[in-house]
Nucleic acid binder design. Structure first.
Length: 520
RNA sequence: GGGCCGUUAGCUCAGUUGGCAGAGCAGGAGACUUUUAAUCUCAAGGUCCAGGGUUCGAUUCCCUGACGGCCCA
């Protein structure tokens, strides 16, 4: 059993203590990372300079009174050479070391007979004894911890990797790399927006009313105020309040929470960038989107063409523009203003299954788009000019449209490989029309559309104070990271993805039967 | 929500046409002072995901469930 392995490690830990060794000391001063030591290897080896490194013991090849080991730190791995001649009595602790212990070493660099760059250890300290064994993954070639190495006994159990990401990160260099690149994407987004004068802000994640997207929220409860709060599904309505407040360019990189299913492109909490630019419109947002996608691709890969799932994706601006009218004609053979019956007929014609005829028109259109149009949008392509009833926060298209059905709004979504990556509008800033649109939403809601917006009076009050013409843009950051790291599941770009609870424990159920104090 | 597949030692996996299971790695003991999937010798390690059914007997067959993966809505 695993307990036996843990017990053996605890016994070693006790033996260390008997020898006067503290297995959990407070600090260890390092002079280099493994990568830095290897980068400056020739110099350091020639000068015989003392190098101090610390990391996790990943491999051990002991040969009697000497031996080799590899440690892994955040920069990579390096080989160690330990011998009794150098360590004296301290060589005894080597026997008490297990794989995945954290150690600190001091010594000099040299090259072995077989040419491997190695640290000859003169002092060795235990920094943290690990009592739980990790999966052992061996690598052949190029030392140990490199891309080209052939891998043995790789851990393929996705469940374990997601649930115990700490283990996944230790044993998979490529997973560490994905999350480094994720950090680069976030830093790159901030850099691009900061350079253009956008101000990074933070708005409430706990909201008395939710809005800014069509989605169902998570509901929670604030004990002190004894009132219901929602986790945000979007930060749009707060960022627009800030535009009213006079910050002409704002952005937020925020966790949003949507109470919906999980799949390869959906996690119940996810990261979105939203930015708003006063005196701009959706044309400006298209240009900004192109700059962001191309700029990040350049920052991460050096060019604007990236590989995804074995195919080229060309993120070189400008991206194609396609109106929704044209897209529906082209791919569904239907007019955007078609009746419900015509939409249903088109769904049927294109083999869309399980269509509920009683759904509202917007839902039917949405389904037709998702099933029939979007799969064709390999992109990158801006799908433009949505029907007004699908976009309660977007401004009517200039110079056309008119009232009621048939009206279009200035809105686009960016599609790449059939997946939505961005959503943007020329923001509606006419307070009377905004009120009317939200009231329509409220009516749809009352009629059973549980993704329709509630009316947010405070938001309307802000817009009544005067909101400048504004362009707004939202980008799904997780999907963007997937695109730029060639990962095919959102779970591979979220450090701790949502999972069903492990084991049979029934924790985390609905507390307290619905109403009242959900605590205790 | 539906379909298919998976769950066996700490890890990667075999296997049992139904008779309580094996290998490699890791771990233990021993040998080995420039190895690298180090090597060699020996010993040990299991609720075969859970529950029910069929059966003299189930890890194996059937049903239900849990969790996960892939595909579809």
């Amino acid at each position: 059993m695993q307990d036996r392995l843990i017990q053996q490690r605890i016994e070693k830990l006790e033996r260390m203590r008997e020898q006067g060794i503290d297995p959990y000391p407070h600090t260890f001063a390092v002079t280099h990372t493994a990568a830095a030591a290897l980068a400056d290897f020739e110099e350091l080896a020639a000068s015989g300079e003392t190098v101090r490194l610390a990391g996790r013991l990943m491999a051990k090849r002991i040969q009697g009174k000497a031996g080799f080991a590899n440690i892994l730190d955040s920069s990579g791995s390096i080989q160690l050479y330990v011998r009794k001649d150098n360590l004296g009595d301290a060589f005894g602790v080597v026997k008490l070391l297990d794989l995945s212990d954290i150690i600190g070493v001091e010594g000099t660099l040299f090259r072995t007979r077989t040419g491997h760059q190695t640290l000859e250890v003169r002092r060795l300290e235990v920094l943290a004894k690990a009592i739980r064994p990790m999966p052992v993954v061996k690598r052949k070639g190029m030392g140990a911890e490199t891309d080209q190495a052939e891998v043995f006994d790789e851990v393929t159990d996705k469940e374990m990797r997601y649930r115990r990401r700490y283990v996944d990160l230790v044993i998979h260099p490529e997973v560490r790399e994905v999350f480094r690149r994720r950090a680069q994407v976030l830093a790159g987004l901030r850099r691009i927006l900061d350079e253009q004068g956008f101000l990074e802000v933070e708005t409430p994640a706990l909201q008395p009313l939710y809005g800014g997207a069509a989605a169902r929220p998570f509901v929670t409860h604030h004990n002190a105020l004894n009132r219901r709060l929602f986790l945000r599904i979007a930060d749009e309505l707060y960022l627009k309040r800030l535009i009213v407040g006079g910050f002409d360019r704002v952005y937020e990189i925020a966790k949003n929470f949507r109470n919906e299913g999980m799949d390869r492109t959906h996690n119940p909490e996810f990261t979105a960038l939203e930015c708003y630019q006063a005196y701009g419109d959706y044309e400006d947002m298209m240009r900004l989107t192109e700059e962001i996608f191309a700029g990040l691709a350049r920052a991460l890969t050096g060019g604007t063409r990236v590989r995804y799932a074995g195919e080229d994706v060309d993120l070189t601006p400008p991206f194609e523009r396609l109106t929704m009218d044209a897209a529906l004609q082209r791919y569904a053979g239907i007019d955007l203003d078609a009746s419900n019956a015509e939409i249903l007929a088109a769904c049927d014609r294109h083999g869309v299954e399980s269509v509920d005829e009683d759904e509202p028109r917007t839902r039917l259109l949405d389904m037709l788009l998702r099933e029939v149009v979007e799969p064709h949008l390999s992109g990158p392509v801006f799908l433009l000019d949505y029907p007004v009833e699908m976009s309660p926060l977007a401004k009517r298209k200039r110079g056309g449209g008119g009232e009621g059905r048939g009206a279009r709004v200035e809105r686009f979504e960016l599609f790449i490989r059939g997946t939505e990556f961005a959503n943007a509008f020329s923001e509606l800033n006419d307070p009377l029309e905004q009120r009317a649109r939200l009231e329509e939403q409220a009516a749809a809601r009352a009629a059973g559309d549980d993704e329709a917006h509630p009316v947010d009076e405070d938001f309307l009050r802000a817009v009544e104070h005067g909101m400048p013409p504004t362009g707004g843009l939202g980008i799904g950051v997780d999907r963007l990271v997937m695109l730029l790291t060639d990962q095919h599941s959102i779970r591979d770009v979220v450090l701790f993805p949502a999972m069903r609870p492990e084991g049979g424990e029934v924790e985390g159920e609905e507390p307290g039967g619905g109403q009242g104090d959900p605590c205790h």
